[in-house]
Design a protein around this nucleic acid. Structure first.
Lengths: 107, 107
DNA sequence: TTTTATGGTTTATAATGCAAACTAGTTAAA
DNA sequence: TTTAACTAGTTTGCATTATAAACCATAAAA
């Protein structure tokens, strides 16, 4: 496929900056707490929460809600193998497209 | 800045897939006709038109509307120096963030 | 002279990102 | 002891956005 066409159709679930940041952080951490993830990404809680929901729905992350002393919520998040693969593929695809784009010349 | 924070705040004007494709194509072509650009990116005319408007408004491209024999519209588009610089900076920033991210470890 | 094609733009809609407001519980202060 | 403020998130509403459908003006074809 023409590289520009492929570029215009990138996986937006991962491509979106906030989610790309979340996925990259989780890929480095393996596991992170909600508040720590908020600190790492600089997102608001509401924003982080809704992005996490989308990533969970896609099967890219696992969200574990625990209650400290059965009272205080404490949420931990980890990336799934599927999520790791999706992130890896995203970067590979982007790199490949860029390579092709560099060599591309109008005929 | 924390790499994930920076990632979450990427320049969305360029980051958006359709516009990233347009900018990359124009960067390779120097100049392109509207329909050629549509073919390269696979976007619909309406979609391409509105993305071009945004890029023009940002000063990243120049749109030249001519009329063949004063009748048929014929639009050519070229990237500006500012646009080239913005695209270049975008890739450089992304590469740098990725580098830092690779090395990053939770303390 | 009605139909089809060209080269786009405008309009309408559906989706999305975002933060403000909210919830449910806890601890601290008055 | 009731009020206030904090914690750890979720839900709601708004504003922006991407997208394609509908549209417009002209030309060529049937």
């Amino acid at each position: 496929m023409m590289p520009f066409k492929e570029m215009a159709r990138l996986n937006k679930l991962i491509h979106e900056p906030a989610r790309l940041a979340i996925m990259s952080a989780l890929n480095a951490c393996t596991m992170a707490e909600f508040l720590f993830l908020q600190e790492l990404t600089g997102l608001t809680k509401g924003n982080l929460s809704s992005h996490l929901s989308k990533l969970e729905k896609a099967g890219y992350i696992l969200i574990n809600k625990q209650f400290v002393r059965k009272k205080i919520p404490h949420t931990t998040i980890r990336i799934t193998n599927e999520g790791k693969a999706a992130l890896h593929n995203y970067w590979e695809q982007l790199d490949r497209i860029r390579e092709v784009t560099k060599k591309w010349q109008k005929d």
